[in-house]
Design a protein around this nucleic acid. Structure first.
Lengths: 197, 197
DNA sequence: TCAAGAACAGACAGGTCTGTCTATTTTTCT
DNA sequence: AGAAAAATAGACAGACCTGTCTGTTCTTGA
């Protein structure tokens, strides 16, 4: 009866420590570039503890990404919540949050996009996990675009998403944390030029 | 007098073959994921030949990226040339070219962005090479924005760039080759709403 | 207190990686 | 034809990688 499968405790301190350490290192240096041993040394956890919690490195990567994704989603939800009811204010708030992120210590682009880059195989669980996470952002934009009564909410949502991803890429590539400003302005231009009732 | 440094023949068939094969494999599977031996097997070239042309794997990566960058630049220059003199037509032509690219066999995102993702260290020659290449695209947009007499050509250029990168990311992440359409429309919207003389 | 589960250190296997070396063959140019 | 340059196969070193295994110690809860 004792299930030997590697998820005995859904939430253990060691497990959380491993996930946070792994994410930090992967984000800093890349997924292939960081070995298991580095994560273990940095976190001070034993190898068998890791393999008791996760079947493989890939599973660790997925879990680390999903933990981070949950945190990001919470943060974004709060950001939108605080922006009030006006759709344009919500859009502005989202891009302001990007602005803050780009200015934060250790910003290194989008871990999820980088994960897709390193695991381009569509059947990889890593790849699929990223897709799910990104879809949530698009859905958020679509919700706002609908509230805006845009002529084509789907199109506007997609365009806002393009601007967001583009801003991340530019901030990362050129180490310019102000990339969100141009994106925000373009986003508001596009959103505002939409025919409203 | 014979310089033993690893660049004896600037242009040799084997060298070009190695660069093309390397790029293809890196683009398909990622930089860390593809080993030297795989490139050698695929190209049918001996290991010492590779190391006679390139000091290291990193140098091979840089050379492969730069060869590809030159080809892309040529293609883009021709695309703009064929679009005629109207700035808006040039912008449309660039995004149409993205559209074609996204629909082409083997599209797998932007190799340069993925390279930054795998080599985030700013001092890496790989990282720096990508930055140079991307700057050329931004400069191209800036040139067109200036021709357009945009109020702020730099801002518009940056926004067009964000849309372009965003479209690539979206096409790659969601395997949706039509991502360029929304980007093109947004680009033309932004460019057109610019106050002209 | 004491038993069971969790985490520990560390060795280990088996594979892969980059880069070097040698000795031989092929190509190229004059 | 003959010399110089280029490419070849393949072994090799040394490092690193993931994942397994063992036996010990720590933690925790009844």
């Amino acid at each position: 009866m004792p299930d030997a499968s590697p998820s005995p405790a859904r939430k253990s301190p060691k497990r959380e420590l491993l996930l946070d350490t792994a994410f930090k290192l992967f984000y800093e240096r890349g997924f292939h570039a960081v070995g298991i041993d580095t994560i273990l040394a940095e976190s001070g956890v034993a190898k068998m503890t890791l393999y008791n919690h996760f079947k493989s490195k890939d599973e660790l990567i997925v879990a680390a990404l999903e933990k981070r994704a949950a945190e990001i989603l919470d943060h974004r939800t709060a950001t939108i919540q605080e922006a009030g009811d006006a759709p344009l204010a919500k859009i502005a708030a989202i891009f302001d949050a990007y602005h803050q992120w780009f200015h934060s210590e250790g910003f290194n682009g989008c871990a999820f996009i980088r994960a897709i880059g390193e695991y381009p195989d569509e059947t990889s669980p890593i790849n699929q996990s990223v897709k799910r996470q990104k879809q949530i952002l698009i859905d958020t934009f679509a919700q706002i675009a609908t509230e805006l009564k845009a002529k084509s909410p789907q199109l506007l949502a997609q365009q806002l998403y393009l601007l967001a991803e583009g801003a991340i890429i530019r901030a990362h590539t050129f180490q310019d944390p102000d990339s969100a400003l141009a994106a925000k302005q373009a986003a508001l231009d596009l959103a505002q030029s939409t025919p409203q009732t």
